[in-house]
Design a protein around this nucleic acid. Sequence first.
DNA 1: GATCCTCCCTAAAACGATTTAATGGCTCCA
DNA 2: TGGAGCCATTAAATCGTTTTAGGGAGGATC
Lengths: 336, 336
Amino acid sequence: MSLKELARHLNVSPATVSLVLNNVPAARAISKATRERVLAAARHFQYRPNFVARSLRAQRTYAVGVIVPELSDGYSALVLSGIEDLLLREGYMYLVASHRHRPKLIERYPAMLIERCVEGLIAVDTPCEHPLPVPVVSVSGHRRVPGVTNVVLNHRRAGELALGHLVGLGHRRIAFIKGQAFSSDTEVRWEAMRSAARRFGVPVQPGLVAQLEGESPSPELGYVAARKLLAAGQTFTALVAFNDISAIGAIRAFREAGLRVPEDVSVVGFDDAYAAAFHIPALTTIRQPLYRMGMLAAETLLRLITAGPGAQRSYLKVEPELVVRESTGPAPSDQT
Amino acid sequence: MSLKELARHLNVSPATVSLVLNNVPAARAISKATRERVLAAARHFQYRPNFVARSLRAQRTYAVGVIVPELSDGYSALVLSGIEDLLLREGYMYLVASHRHRPKLIERYPAMLIERCVEGLIAVDTPCEHPLPVPVVSVSGHRRVPGVTNVVLNHRRAGELALGHLVGLGHRRIAFIKGQAFSSDTEVRWEAMRSAARRFGVPVQPGLVAQLEGESPSPELGYVAARKLLAAGQTFTALVAFNDISAIGAIRAFREAGLRVPEDVSVVGFDDAYAAAFHIPALTTIRQPLYRMGMLAAETLLRLITAGPGAQRSYLKVEPELVVRESTGPAPSDQT
DNA sequence: GATCCTCCCTAAAACGATTTAATGGCTCCA
DNA sequence: TGGAGCCATTAAATCGTTTTAGGGAGGATC
């Protein structure tokens, strides 16, 4: 049932119905009797305005696009939860597209979403090279692109927390698993770890650095990386992994090599994904407030949409948190 | 740049531009020269038709709504991946809403999505009581509702696989963790297990049945349930958990109680979520083809949208698969 | 010179809402 | 009786597209 039909049925003009239903100031010029008649009829026929027509007229869709690498890795899903909660609360909805790191899709999806008339874009862990005709907020984006606001973790602090914890436990020979080349946090996090290591006076040895390779969101990649570290032959008493998933894979590799965690090797994860707390051993990790980052991103985007780029900042920082569980312990004293 | 502006710029009518750009049969009546002029201008100005206007006119939005309980549990995310891949491939996009089991939202979200003019709805693990004005496909829905197609697992077979495996290993005292009351698979799966147990001649003892309670997608719930089982005092040598997440929580509870998995207790999960393979011990589980179920749901929905309810079936079944890993082993011989 | 094609193209009406300027009827006052 | 002013309502334009019926120009035919 359209507004026009409703109007015909009531023997009034569409304008009258629209004014009344939207309860605009001008509607006070409509007599109380008519107003009530309109409202009653709308209720009776369960009239719902057509969203598409309204969008066309108002040039507003109350929709935003969200681009993520992968739906089924804990990371994106948590950020997405935060995004969703804020958006729905504000009357927006969102379209999702996940590119699985395929460059073609990374290129195409923003354009597709913009063609769908989204009013803004949130890119989660996804590079965002070109300026776009709508406001963009990037979660864990680090490039300074005009019109793009980046929501980032305080990585300097994260590095301090991770290394400080291990150093405090007596670890000096620390191995690292870097993230995949395509992950936007990889470089920043690695720099943060190196710089923290420098500050703590801990050497970072080339033989003790492995990198995740491949796109699977499974611990397999961490498993492979950890095996490389073991194969390289340099001993270490602790590992800082790029994320919890790879930490879990690494622990499996260590176990298979006869190393106990944390007695022989301490492992620090990153993110504090759901899996971290309930793994055996439970993971010590650097928590990113992913849900809050999602909310912050959405909130920022809506502000950009409604208030314009005004005092747009390039970076919004959130703070990490060290969560100590079972996967870290004192460095073994009988180091070779 | 709108079509109208493009037309004005070219000194032709909007109709001409539309005909040419859409390359409809009627466009053959436009001279080649004009056609090329139009195409060139469109390219030059990077003209993109306004999706909203087009949707209004065509009464098609090429959008569907997806309702899930929770974005960040492996289950929904995997189904969603399948849905997404198929939808995008067919030129559709989707709006997501996650209700976190809140009855109000379960009630409201379908209506909200329909107001947004989605052409169909996919409900993942979400009850769907009322008939709706658009086609609906429910993943793991089991109620027969007019206009709703259910994509379901062959649970009878799943029960057979799980219990058959354990019985084959010599287990007779088997405990169960049922799903939460709100999960649409809970009843069906439980019935399947009971019936399989009957067929294998294994008793199902009330003291060996616990139920998940609470809404968190973390293993905590399984942990709590397993502790209840242990506290009940009846001995058992194997556990069939409602899903992998709760199996992981249960394993942690067993470990804390000094029980080894699988030496003292075998544990079978369900779903084969990412976590299953890389848990320590790796989970033996009943795999649901979640990604395929998502695809199947989306495919079915699009067929309903484009071809109408024609030969609509109430149920589409997919097959489970037993994945044997480390969490199950022979029943201990020294049973008390 | 009238009629009939053919070829190119366009006017105009949708789709379903919102919004602004205007209208008709009424009362009131001079 | 004519004009001012108010009240309740509406006509019409608009958003950007698609689509259908039809129109004008030019050439061929009788």
